[in-house]
Design a protein around this nucleic acid. Structure first.
Length: 514
RNA sequence: GUCCUCAUCGUCUAGGGGCCUAGGACACUGGCCUUUCACGCCGGCAACCGGGGUUCGAAUCCCCGUGAGGACGCCA
């Protein structure tokens, strides 16, 4: 059987729908995470750029799960990855069916082991690869020796490359374990990177690396090449950390005489301290950001502009606009630092685009969780909608409303000490509050609106010759316990007459007034 | 150690020989507005890693340093 026929038959039998013909010019890209951890923000950026590139070029975005590390791969991580991508609306055209995660399909590498083995043996047949019977001890010693000698070359010395047929037969008969290594040809290897320029590696850099381990499971660089070819991947867009894997993969493409896809290597994302982004930088997994109250639109926009730019002016883009305007040429070469502040800024922008009803819907889980509201009724919902409007830009993240909602629905547990000292310590102020509260009490509860309230409070304080600002703060303290709130009179209106009058009265009574 | 990549305000970036006394955004900051906070408006601070070339002219091109990151596994 000839190589091309083999490829063909595997392709059609294993990936129905893709077919054998590599339609010229069709863009097919893939995102290939391994489910050994939650999807983190760096991965999302890679996925996003692949997605944008695919959509921009009317191509396909493929999700492939690299779950060959059986020890560390977990279904919960698979689920996390799928959920994260879907939450961000980075939907894949081909890939796992996550409504049915039990039923793993051909987009899982774990389901493709036979294919890899078959292809490795194909290379064995064509003489592009060979069996290596070297023991681990020998390899360890070799590497050790090379290090001590400060050799420029560290790697396999090709010991088994020229084993005779007889020796191989003999070893096989003795059931000696073996690995399969590619024969790496002489000569430097270079490729044109879509993001960078031409990248060239000197020949010295490569040893005959292993493609099949002694347990006959394939290695990473091998599976990637086989899959990318079989899945007709046209452009490989991935992190910069894969640059040095690329020549190895090119060696394999050449060994198979396969067409080499285009490669593009994205700069990495660092934490705010300039170190590679990791758990200790706070939130890194997508769903953590979701929990903290960030919007998917904000994350997408922020990530898109981290390492890519349109021009020097615009930096707010919807997904549709990103797809339309995306271009590989404008991808930066430089690793960028993640900025929670900038993300927050984007979040504010996208949050403000939402209607109060939409916001309330998104914020509801936080309100319930934080126990800010005991009974969720139509009345409380109406209050919350008003509060959302009144709070405006103060809500930068979803849970921020909790802070403003709490005092509306709950009596403050304590009062800010400094504030109390400053605004509520004088007898004069307390007496004025008493007068104000009596007036407030005379208002019909249906007339308890902010304009009316402000008029009353202002006229009384002015009549008493007091600074209205101080009285405003005093009222704010009694009602909310702190010095931060949305507009005072709007807040009072939302609280309603009973609550306001009751809290002021209670406070004054505590101070011996009434 | 070898190889690869990268290098403009604190951060994200614009810039591809003269338009640059380097532009925008976030952050910070002064002022205005204002019942607090936030928003908004006006203003400010702040950068071409160093050294050599090439050129009439360099942030932009070349070389050498330096720094940062990555890769060198029977991990992915």
């Amino acid at each position: 059987m000839q190589r091309s026929q083999t490829g063909q038959s595997i392709m059609t039998s294993v990936i129905p729908g893709i077919g054998g013909c590599k339609s010229m010019g069709e863009v097919r890209v893939r995102f290939a995470p391994s489910p050994t951890g939650k999807l983190h923000i760096g991965g999302v950026r890679t996925a996003l750029f692949n997605f944008l590139f695919a959509k921009k070029n009317s191509g396909k975005f493929i999700l492939r799960i690299e779950d060959t590390d059986f020890e560390r791969s977990k279904d919960e991580f698979l689920e996390d990855i799928c959920n994260s991508l879907q939450w961000l609306k980075l939907n894949w055209d081909e890939g796992p069916d996550n409504r049915n995660p039990e039923n793993k399909n051909e987009y899982f590498q774990s389901q493709r082991m036979e294919i890899y083995k078959e292809h490795a043996f194909k290379l064995l047949e064509t003489g592009m690869a060979y069996r290596c019977f070297c023991s681990r001890e020998r390899l360890d010693n070799l590497r050790e020796k090379q290090k001590i000698e400060k050799s420029d070359f560290i790697g396999y010395d090709g010991h088994c490359r020229s084993l005779s047929m007889e020796e191989i037969e003999k070893n096989l008969e003795m059931k000696l374990p073996y690995t399969v290594r590619v024969k790496v040809p002489e000569g430097e290897i270079s490729f044109d990177d879509m993001v960078r320029e031409k990248i060239t590696f000197p020949a010295l850099n490569f040893d005959d690396f292993i493609i099949l381990r002694s347990d006959l499971f394939p290695t990473y660089n091998f599976t990637v090449v086989v899959d990318d070819h079989l899945m007709n991947i046209s452009h490989v867009i991935r992190g910069e950390d894969h640059i040095s894997n690329t020549p190895k993969q090119i060696i394999l493409y050449n060994a198979f005489k396969w067409e080499i896809p285009k490669f593009g290597h994205l700069p990495l994302i660092f934490g705010e301290d300039g170190k590679l982004l990791s758990k200790r930088h706070g939130a890194v997994s997508v769903l953590e950001f979701k929990e903290q109250g960030y919007l998917p639109e904000a994350i997408i926009n922020f990530l898109a502009l981290l390492g890519w730019s349109f021009d020097s002016e615009r930096e707010v883009f919807s997904m549709e606009e990103l797809i339309e305007l995306f271009s590989v040429e404008k991808i930066s070469k430089k690793a960028a630092r993640f900025s929670y502040e900038k993300l927050l800024w984007y979040n504010t922008i996208y949050l403000n685009e939402k209607s109060p009803v939409e916001k309330l819907h998104l914020i509801k889980p936080y309100l319930l969780k934080e126990a800010a509201i005991k009974d969720w009724t139509g009345e409380s919902e109406a209050k919350l909608l008003k509060l959302i409007e009144v709070c405006g830009d103060r809500i930068k993240k979803l849970p921020d409303l909790v802070f403003y909602a709490k005092p509306v629905f709950n009596e403050p547990e304590s009062i800010d000490e400094k504030g109390e000292k400053k605004f509520l310590s004088s007898e004069e102020n307390l007496r004025t509050l008493f007068t104000i509260n009596s007036e407030l009490n005379k208002i019909n509860r249906t007339d308890f609106v902010s304009g009316r309230l402000e008029g009353i409070v202002r006229s009384i304080t002015e009549r008493e010759g007091l600074n209205p600002n101080k009285i405003f703060q005093a009222i704010r303290l009694i009602l909310t316990g702190g010095l931060l709130s949305a507009g005072l009179f709007e807040t009072m209106e939302i609280m309603g007459k009973e609550t306001v009058v009751y809290r002021i009265e209670k406070y004054l009574k505590g101070k011996g007034i009434y």
